[in-house]
Design a protein around this nucleic acid. Structure first.
Lengths: 242, 242
DNA sequence: CGCCGATTTGAACTGCTTCAAGCCATGTGG
DNA sequence: CCACATGGCTTGAAGCAGTTCAAATCGGCG
């Protein structure tokens, strides 16, 4: 496992204003800087195994990771996507509840778990922000339950693309150009495992959305959103016409 | 809406050792006691509408509530069950993200939102416990995604029964008798909306589990778990034989 | 150039939904 | 005290969305 691929000062960090540290002042950042360290992973590498002891916690700096659970017979469910600024691991838990896997090249800003927990007790800014982020993730996880429990294959794929586009747009400082082009962070198989479908069905529905003019398949892992309103309509969420 | 059906002292409260207040000392409890108030709802009553302003937050004292989201065309997904000691509402959010509905007769121990937020800032015991509870709920929500995304109808129904039995057992002080008898907190329709199935399929799978000897259908809303190991095997989670 | 993994496409199958009765307990008014 | 609504539940039969299995195509990369 490669280490320390970069070591910028916190003040210059790309996720400075969105991660657990976002509410920290300069003095607090200085304390974090002392104990933080970076780790990098290649696409496909496992970061954490479910059930293993979590030696560290941290934030995604660049890249995307999946949180997933596997059943004995090989079925897999991707229960969450971790994008830049998202937090990995949890204070107060010894073992990881889910597998964490790098979906693309990934860099984490890490802290050893025990020291981080001690810091949290002294820095309410961090624990407040972590509570806020956790509540947001809980809402997101419950929103995803609607997708998994009640939506058709077409709606699931459209919902996924819409949510990736939304998160991508939020990370950028300037509004995205139209048409919005985006790199899909997952393979067809990982998408299927996230959407509760088979990879064949995902492929067919992507094709169908392209034929319908909502999107264009630019390359295997790259699409353009030609008609955002149409895509939104295909999610099944909202009859709100634009 | 009925109010103040009961007003026990916090020290005697049934959820004293599990709810947000579980870490509070006597002095802190006294502060909460000053501002708390009870609300009761009949089965079927709506507690909160999604999108509405949340005037209060609180804990389930008795009864069960559902958290759900409805799509325009009438599809419904129950994204969570709220059992005694679970927390309703969230500090730092003006509007409710989901509908909250009483599934049975329900009593909440409430706090007006703004004063509660102020209290939280002064009582780290409360915010720590809330973070812990939120992290647990997040894990539970993600575990449920596995059910919705990857399990068959049979496995979903078995998983639901197993999870209700587990939570029920955890609330009791003494281990449950064998066979464990339990009151289903939801109608067939609400179960279906939780499991991402139709009510007919739920009914058929309950019948099938009974025919297989895993459970007995004692009454419409009441079952016995005759063979816990068999039921566990039917969930699809674990090939661990007993 | 030729291999390999990822993706697309095709065709048959199936588990769940859909639509439609029927059942059972409870309650209500004549 | 019975006739008859009413709401939750069960049962049946037909249809279909998505899976499964299989094969073809694409796109990198050594």
């Amino acid at each position: 496992m490669a280490r320390d691929p970069l070591s910028p000062r916190c003040a210059d960090c790309g996720i400075r204003h969105r991660a657990v540290c976002s509410r920290c002042d300069a003095a607090e950042l200085a304390r974090l800087e002392q104990v933080k360290f970076y780790r990098s992973y290649e696409a496909g590498q496992r970061v954490v195994w479910a059930g293993d002891e979590m030696a560290f916690v941290g934030s995604v700096v660049t890249g995307v990771a999946t949180l997933s659970h596997s059943l004995e017979d090989g079925r897999v469910q991707v229960v969450g996507l971790l994008m830049p600024s998202d937090f990995v691991g949890r204070p107060g838990r010894e073992t990881a509840p889910f597998d964490v896997t790098a979906a693309s090249a990934l860099t984490l800003c890490c802290f050893r778990r025990a020291p981080f927990e001690r810091l949290m007790a002294e820095m309410p800014h961090v624990s407040e922000r972590l509570l806020e982020m956790t509540l947001d993730e809980l809402d997101a996880a419950r929103d995803w339950a609607v997708v998994l429990g009640r939506k058709s294959a077409r709606e699931r794929v459209a919902s996924f693309l819409a949510s990736v586009a939304r998160r991508e747009a939020k990370l950028e400082l300037v509004p995205p150009p139209r048409p919005q082009r985006l790199a899909l962070p997952l393979t067809r198989e990982a998408m299927a495992d996230h959407l509760g479908l088979t990879l064949e069905t995902v492929s067919r529905q992507l094709g169908a959305l392209a034929r319908a003019g909502a999107i264009a398949l630019d390359a295997k892992r790259r699409i353009s959103i030609l008609d955002p309103a149409r895509l939104a309509a295909e999610t099944g969420d909202d009859a709100t016409a634009a």
